[in-house]
Write a protein that binds this DNA or RNA. Structure first.
Lengths: 184, 184
DNA sequence: GTCTATAACCGGATAGAC
DNA sequence: GTCTATCCGGTTATAGAC
């Protein structure tokens, strides 16, 4: 098994980068630092990532892709609990990335991905609040989406499934949606 | 006369910087290049200017200051020909800087001077178009200010005084102001 | 005190050898 | 895939000439 673990180093670079960025901020971390932590040299990074930007993008991209895949099957009038449940799951799965983005939203602009994120938020709003929502409705949906993401990050102690249910209950209340078959 | 020419080197740096920036753009010029052209080393630049930004600012600042000094005496209802004449003069005096700014307006943002410039343009508009001007009036004044600046730069061949009169005549027409005592 | 230079460090990025 | 070496740009420390 010599060449099977091709991406191993790249992965280690990614995770080192993630840790350091989480600790110090994107602009405060140099490629040298990242390389050192991985135990390689700067140029080695450049073998795996053409630039600093590309490295950061490679951190965020899988999350973006995953969200888009999860959102794809849903359409207008989607069941809120289902849609937001799926969104919770994907957010939770990538909670390290979610946390990074929440700490420094500027990252998205940096790697030219802000538009994508804005788009799926808008899509979710239109699916959940209808085609011509009032401001109040939009606000509630945006709060729901944002708050849901926050919880996956801010409450890392909570086990996934419990957190999931608690968040979805709260979000449905926020959206004035009666919970489904909850026994008293 | 030992210490009289204190700022000489700083001036040479400024003028070298100005030339190179005019030729290649602000962001395309390195301090090394500037230093070389002056015949000193990079660190020598740093003695005179704390940073790249400060160097650029020192290029622009005298112009800003001069404009503000010139504008100060004027108030609401100022005579347009007089005000614009004074503004022409100051623009013409600093036409090298004016040209640089026109080529790359971003420079102002870079050195945090965009606000200042915006302000005196607004001031001139309110002085010349009154407190509650129509859009049409504002447009004419802004065109006058901008066009006047352009002429000092675009027509470097023309001698100052002739250019001045020609520009002022044109500007007064633009502002629908009858020229003062012009014989037929 | 004014001015300048040498040398060095940091960060990003690339070439080329192993 | 990884390194050594190198370049560039910005910046600073230090030392020293005038």
């Amino acid at each position: 098994m010599p060449r099977a673990r091709t991406t191993e180093t790249a992965d280690r670079i990614r995770s080192a980068a993630l840790e350091l960025i989480a600790a110090k901020g994107v602009h405060q971390v140099s490629l040298r630092e990242i390389a050192e932590r991985v135990g390689v040299t700067k140029p080695a990074l450049y073998y795996h990532f053409a630039s600093r930007e590309e490295l950061v993008r490679s951190l965020v991209q899988p999350f973006i892709d995953d969200v888009e895949a999860v959102l794809a099957p849903f359409g207008p009038g989607a069941d809120a609990r289902q849609l937001l449940g799926a969104y919770f799951d994907v957010t939770y799965r990538h909670r390290d990335i979610t946390a990074m983005i929440m700490r420094e939203p500027g990252i998205l602009a940096l790697v030219d991905l802000a538009a994508a994120v804005g788009q799926w938020r808008t899509r979710m709003v239109s699916m959940l609040a209808g085609p011509d929502p009032s401001l109040a409705e939009v606000v509630r949906v945006q709060m729901a989406i944002g708050g849901l993401g926050d919880c996956t990050v801010v409450l890392p102690g909570a086990a996934g499934p419990e957190l999931r249910e608690a968040v979805l209950d709260a979000v449905c209340d926020l959206l004035l949606i009666p919970g489904p078959a909850r026994e008293p």
